[in-house]
């Protein structure tokens, strides 16, 4: 019964909430509340500023890199490990082919999955410890940051447990945790996964128009 719900109606609800929620949030930013025109005369192109800012944001500035090493390294470990597993783990590729694309593509070998997921776990745990122990992040973190971290952790853990596809219960548990994450996603700090693009673009336009090196 629970398995049917998780594979059926729950999955459909999660998909709808995820897509409608994310789209609605993005529309809110891109259309509904963006009525500002910049009346100052631009020195340089705002569009190239937006593009540069989106690229520039992927690597830290040398002036602060020494002070933020942990966040950068752990951040990259988590994100890279997570995306490799999400898009290239064999069960995920199979699932994507069956439900979305209709075709399969390259998958990582079993050992690759283990390495990628361990890197992702280590990154996530380091980031979480930093969040809890560093006085700055402890002060500024919100409940939703912790909920999001826990949900992602549970998704990754149940995913690893279900990897062998030995037990259907573990697969269902993994899928259910993914559904919870998808429902939570549009209303939480997880939205940064999409919002960083307009966010960097807005600032990039401002700096680009002024002729500041983004």
């Amino acid at each position: 019964m629970f398995e049917q719900l998780v594979d059926g109606i729950f999955w459909n609800i999660a998909l709808i909430v995820f897509f409608v929620g994310v789209t609605w949030r993005l529309i809110t930013v891109l259309v509904l509340r963006s009525k500002r025109i910049d009346y100052s005369v631009a020195r340089n192109s705002g569009v190239s500023g937006a593009i540069m800012a989106n690229i520039r944001g992927f690597y830290p500035r040398k002036e602060v890199s020494g002070r933020i090493r942990l966040q950068v390294i752990a951040g990259y470990m988590f994100h890279l490990g997570f995306f490799v597993v999400l898009f290239f783990a064999a069960p995920h590729v199979k699932f994507i082919a069956q439900n979305i694309t209709g075709f399969t593509y390259m998958t990582i070998p079993y050992w690759g999955f283990i390495v990628a997921s361990e890197i992702a776990f280590a990154g996530l745990i380091l980031l979480w410890l930093h969040r809890l122990l560093n006085p700055v992040t402890r002060l500024i973190s919100k409940r939703s940051d912790h909920i999001a971290t826990i949900l992602v952790f549970v998704v990754m853990l149940t995913g690893c447990m279900a990897l062998g596809e030995a037990s259907s219960e573990l697969r269902v548990l993994h899928r259910f945790s993914v559904e919870l994450l998808m429902v939570y996603f549009p209303f939480s700090a997880l939205m940064h996964a999409f919002m960083f693009i307009p966010s960097r673009a807005f600032t990039g336009v401002l700096l680009g128009r002024r002729g500041v090196n983004v």
Binding site: R25, V29, P60, V64, I68, Q71, G75, H130, R131, N134, V136, T137, I140, S141, K142, D145, A189, M191, H192, M195, F196, S199
Partner: peptide
């Protein structure tokens, strides 16, 4: 919406 409270 995009702040991850990373403290950087």
């Amino acid at each position: 919406s995009s702040c991850t409270h990373c403290g950087v």
